[in-house]
Amino acid sequence: MTIAGRKVPVTAYIGGIIVLLAVIMILFAPWIAPYPQTKIVGGVWDLPNAKDWLGTDSIGRDMLSRLIYGGRTSVSIALIATCLTMIIGVGLGFVAASTNKLVDNVISRIVDVLLAMPILIFGLMVFAVLGTSIPIMIITIAVLESTRVFRLARAVAMNITVMDYVQVARLRGEGIGWVIFREILPNALPPLVAEFGLRFCFTFLFIASLSFLGLGIQPPAADWGSMVHDNAQAISFGGFAPLFPAGAIAVVTIGVNLVVDWLLSIHALPAGAGAEI
């Protein structure tokens, strides 16, 4: 198969299938999972067997069912946080790039300060003050990560606003709405779509880390990060239990990354480049 005149590589297929499976899992968790997520079906950390394909967890719940439900929580929360991140980051980035210098300077300096610190450290500060709940977590992550998106969106928009066609629209007297939505946005989409994928990976891993640290999504809802946290002790007893949720996180991230890599490679070559090479 070819898309945009280029052959789709195998890696993109693998990534696509992983992403598809993740989507199916989110939508149909109750129908796929063999057991309800909270039901105790066996002993503590039973090894994988015919009944419980992936064994059981720290209090004897079915690992596979917990994984399926956990994926639903982890992926959807990361998705919501990423969408919010992109809206804030791209919105501010475009405004900074296409209005006056003062607005740009004010936003950029605030972002500089937020960028001067790792997200995790700022995040921990906020959680220490406000406590951990899912809305607080999502908003905190979105605000902090949007500073990274802001940088990119602003740079992309800046590269487009210097194009003469944007100037033509401005000289004609078009309003800021037309300039942003009709002139800039359509041309900024490819890098922003790729950024969305990368941001999702980052957010997804970040939320998993928070849950692992016991600060993210709180029980009893299953999510992959806290499943690793809850089952970490199994390692000391020679079990593999935490590897399943940890591996699931890795697989989904790889899948999205593979798709993003492919998207980036499509847009890496401008059409019609190299007339005389």
Binding site: M163, D164, Y165, R182, P186
Partner: peptide, 15 residues
């Protein structure tokens, strides 16, 4: 009206 030097960047490629 103004006509620019480089037609490549004077026309929005997505319109």
């Amino acid at each position: 009206q103004l006509i620019y030097q480089l037609p490549d960047i004077a026309l929005n490629p997505r319109q």
